[in-house]
Design a protein around this nucleic acid. Structure first.
Length: 579
RNA sequence: CGGGGCGUAGCGCAGUUUGGUAGCGCGUUUGGUUCGGGACCAAAAGGCCGUGGGUUCAAAUCCCGUCGCCCCGACCA
């Protein structure tokens, strides 16, 4: 392929805050069509093809059967699982010409069950896994970050069916390993699996695969001591309290206008960890109040709270109907209709400051174990904190980072097979619902994430296994007939040898040529110019700057092929064995 | 869905306050000079000023509607 022929304009101007979006836009990888909707130019499509190929190989290797579900589905299919009604406007609904409700697929559990049911009615078919690589549409409230968060995207989604939990768990391990292999083969072995919240998918055990970067939308908790890692949403929070030697009596004190933890703490010379704060939420469905007490220096984990309540919530908008003294809410002497919950960060705490449920007053000397009823239950409702206690090893070692979710795996259970009535006959002739697992990877997001994690100021640094082209020939001074001849010859040889080669034979200045080459980011670059040609040499350089050397023009083709093999082997050396 | 902003040449923008023949930079085309990190000179092409209506002798500019996009927040398998 010649650079002059590929469609997609490369330019210099920065346009966005997110570097991957910037570089991929500047490099002519994609073009926006609408909010969160993109067309891909050839370079991006080639990357996507390579990732899809890796996905196919790894899914096939764990006995997957590639299938294809429809993008457009009748609403009745989604009603059969209950999700037509339970999912919000992220699911795009519309009517066909006859007025029937339709949806655009945002995930395909229902379609997978529909495809498998009635053709897997005997235990002898099990286990099996079906997967597809296809377009999904999610009507995101807010797309952003180029391909990182879009409304329409290509996804590999896989669904496994089992006759026992043990079998699912065994398969889950294989899928987990397949995912590690996929990321390693795509040149991002640093992708981390973290324990996650399973959200609207239902099910118990789930992992998200995270690429750590500052622009990530998820917060990840890791422990360098023992390797523990979890999404903040799903991370157990452990708080250690040491009891003061002397318990002070509960005393009401005047605090006037001081409402916030900071103000009250300053006034009473108390650090925030020696306080008990109240956080008020409202259930989305009826605006009823939920009141959570936790240690003053902790934050509520809204995902945990939502899961406990089994209800969507939002921070309380106004407390006028709650009969609560905002800023002075406390757990002692509280009279309210709100659901009241206590976080376990209060367990063992002593001599805290808390609201007195009276304007302008707080209590000091609040000790939950003494001042709350004996049967008070403490839940885990707070976020883990940096330097906090690791749920894995118990050390004060937790680190907090940001990450992009580039894939996930769930042990779904029977949620869909039960709801949709999919059954099989077991060995003893019983009719049973199969147990499911599901496994997803967003292809476009993975591309953007790799770019985000691997780039420099000049462009992406694609791992050779997914780079649009393996090698780029830059012919400087194409008007020099020796350069022309040498470059044409090498291009022809490399193509014949099966290398993926991009050839820049435009009569442009070196600056333009190199800048474009940095943006298109072939891992290996050959520069052919009068300067080195005088000595019978080409320059061979790596996009990631790992090498830069002169090679003899004679054996150039072989030298390039060797470098391609070398780089490819370096990526594959980090791929773990299959399970 | 709330708050803010923007739609004018392929891209990025000025012009709108105060109505009066459509501008700039980049890119593109042609010719020339340069040329190993986004060169220079000269010439040229390119716009229904998002869209519908209204006011006016006259609308990119004022008024009303509508569509789209961007940013922040809510939301997010």
């Amino acid at each position: 392929m010649k650079v002059k022929n590929i469609l997609g304009e490369r330019f210099k101007e920065r346009a966005y805050d997110i570097e991957s979006q910037n570089l991929m836009t500047r490099g002519g990888y994609m073009k926006q069509v609408g909010n969160g909707i993109y067309s891909l130019f050839m370079p991006a499509k080639r990357i996507q093809n390579k990732i899809e190929q890796i996905l196919r190989e790894e899914m096939d290797a764990i006995d997957g059967q590639e299938v294809l579900f429809p993008v457009v589905m009748p609403a009745t299919l989604w009603q059969s699982s209950g999700r037509f009604d339970s999912i919000g406007r992220e699911l795009l609904r519309f009517k066909d010409r006859s007025g029937a409700d339709m949806v655009l697929g945002m995930t395909h559990e229902e379609a997978a069950v529909q495809l498998a049911m009635n053709v897997a009615g005997t235990y002898q078919k099990y286990p099996f896994m079906i997967y597809q690589i296809q377009t999904k549409f999610r009507d995101e409230p807010r797309a952003r970050g180029g391909l990182i968060r879009v409304r329409e995207f290509t996804m590999k989604d896989a669904y496994s069916f089992h006759t026992s939990q043990e079998d699912l768990e065994k398969y889950y391990e294989r899928a987990y390993r397949a995912y590690e292999r996929i990321y390693a083969r795509a040149g991002v072995p640093e992708v981390l699996a973290v324990k996650s919240d399973s959200g609207m998918m239902g099910g118990k055990v789930s992992h998200e695969f995270m690429l750590l970067t500052d622009i990530g939308e998820d917060t990840i908790v890791t422990c360098p001591e023992c390797g523990f890692r979890a999404n903040m949403e799903a991370c157990d929070a452990i708080t250690e309290n040491t009891a003061d030697a002397e318990l002070l009596p509960l005393t009401e004190v005047f605090t006037g206008e001081a409402k916030t933890i900071e103000d009250v703490g300053e006034m009473l010379h108390m650090s925030s960890e020696k306080s008990c704060k109240a956080v008020v939420y409202q259930r989305n469905e009826d605006d009823s109040y939920v009141l959570v007490f936790c240690r003053g220096d902790r934050e509520i984990n809204e995902t945990k709270l939502t899961n406990y309540l089994k209800a969507e919530i939002h921070p309380a908008q106004d407390l006028t109907n709650a009969n609560l003294a905002a800023g002075n809410i406390g757990p002692v002497g509280l009279e309210t209709k709100a659901t009241v919950l206590f976080d376990r960060s209060l367990v063992g705490a002593t001599n805290l400051v808390c609201g007195a449920n009276r304007e302008e007053y707080h209590f000091t000397g609040f000790t939950p174990a003494r001042d709350l009823p004996e049967n008070t239950v403490y839940f885990d409702l707070c976020k883990a904190v940096a330097g906090g206690v690791c749920p894995g090893c118990g050390k004060h070692s937790l680190k907090i980072s940001r990450g992009i979710e580039v894939g996930n795996i769930f042990q779904l259970g029977k949620r869909y097979t039960e709801a949709m009535g999919m059954t099989y006959d077991s060995e003893n002739g019983e009719r049973k619902n199969p147990i499911m697992g599901c496994y997803g990877i967003g292809v476009g997001r993975l591309i953007a994430s790799v770019c985000e994690a691997h780039h420099d100021d000049y462009g992406p640094i694609w791992p050779i296994t997914i780079a649009p082209w393996q090698v780029q020939i830059c012919a400087l001074r194409i008007d020099d007939e020796n350069v022309r001849a040498a470059a044409d010859k090498l291009y022809e040889e490399l193509e014949k040898a099966g290398a993926e080669v991009l050839y820049d034979d435009r009569a442009v200045s070196a600056g333009v040529m190199f800048s474009d080459a940095d943006l298109l980011a072939a891992p290996v670059r050959v520069v052919i110019s009068p300067k080195t040609l005088q000595r019978g040499c080409f320059e061979l350089a790596a996009r990631d700057k790992s090498f830069r050397e002169d090679i003899s023009a004679e054996g150039a083709c072989e030298a390039v092929l060797a470098k391609i093999r070398e780089l490819t082997e370096a990526v594959n050396a980090k791929v773990p064995e299959r399970l």
